[in-house]
């Protein structure tokens, strides 16, 4: 087996304008910053990015927005990046705000091949708009549809050549769920080892297409 290790250049060569990206991280903790910088340098544009938040204007995913590479943002929170709000109000960028638990479950559903999830979150609020309300045993739920993307960019702490991943502390967040829901899944790891103990694997390598070495 040749393994899933590739160079950053090889990984970036698979990416294109207009693609949708699931990008792991929570306020830049657990964001694959090297891959995101690669997208910026490659001058990819017209992108859709899906993630917890839109980061900060000068770091991580926020930089893609500040540099106007993004056509659509799906996030739970954009307050830390004023540029996102500005582009939303001017109509330059489409912004879809989603409750955090709903986003996690939509991506999980996408990765798991489910038709969506039913949740009470958002009932009686603007989140309900244009969505199907389904009653189960007298309780109202919203049908939230699955989310997948062309590419998932994942940040791991440790990876092996089989693509198995281990995350560290609160840097796990959306990464393991997103690793299941990209057509192409690229993981950036701080450390590469020969083989991770199967009992310790957090994301099985079957979900992961490529592994690149990131910075520590």
């Amino acid at each position: 087996m040749l393994g899933k290790m590739v160079s950053v250049e090889q990984a970036l060569s698979k990416l294109d304008h207009g693609q949708s990206f699931l990008i792991g991280g929570f306020l830049n903790v657990g964001t694959p910053e090297m891959l995101v910088s690669g997208i910026l340098e490659k001058e990819l544009k017209d992108l859709e990015i899906i993630g917890n938040d839109s980061g900060f204007p000068d770091r991580g995913v926020g930089e893609l927005i500040a540099n106007k590479r993004v056509r659509k943002v799906v996030a739970t929170h954009i307050g830390t990046n004023p540029e996102t709000g500005k582009q939303m109000h001017s109509g330059e960028t489409e912004v879809v705000l989603v409750p955090q638990g709903t986003l996690a479950e939509q991506i999980r559903a996408g990765g798991a091949g489910l038709g969506g999830v039913l949740t009470a979150t958002g009932i009686g609020t603007v989140v309900e708009k244009d969505k199907q309300v389904i009653e189960v045993d007298g309780k109202k739920f919203l049908l939230e549809k699955p989310i997948t993307a062309d590419v998932a960019l994942i940040k791991a702490y440790k990876a092996d050549k089989y693509g198995n991943l281990v995350y560290r502390k609160a840097a796990r967040n959306f990464n393991p769920i997103m690793a299941t829901a990209g057509k192409l899944v690229i993981a950036e790891a701080e450390e590469i080892v020969e083989a991770i103990d199967p009992d310790e694997v957090m994301t099985p390598g079957v979900f992961v297409d490529m592994v690149v070495r990131g910075e520590e």
């Binding site: 938040d53 996030a75 739970t76 929170h77 954009i78 307050g79 709000g85 705000l97 409750p99 955090q100 638990g101 709903t102 979150t121 958002g122 609020t125 989140v127």
Partner: peptide
């Protein structure tokens, strides 16, 4: 700013 996890 967005709802983050507040609605959940």
């Amino acid at each position: 700013p967005g709802m983050g996890g507040a609605m959940d």
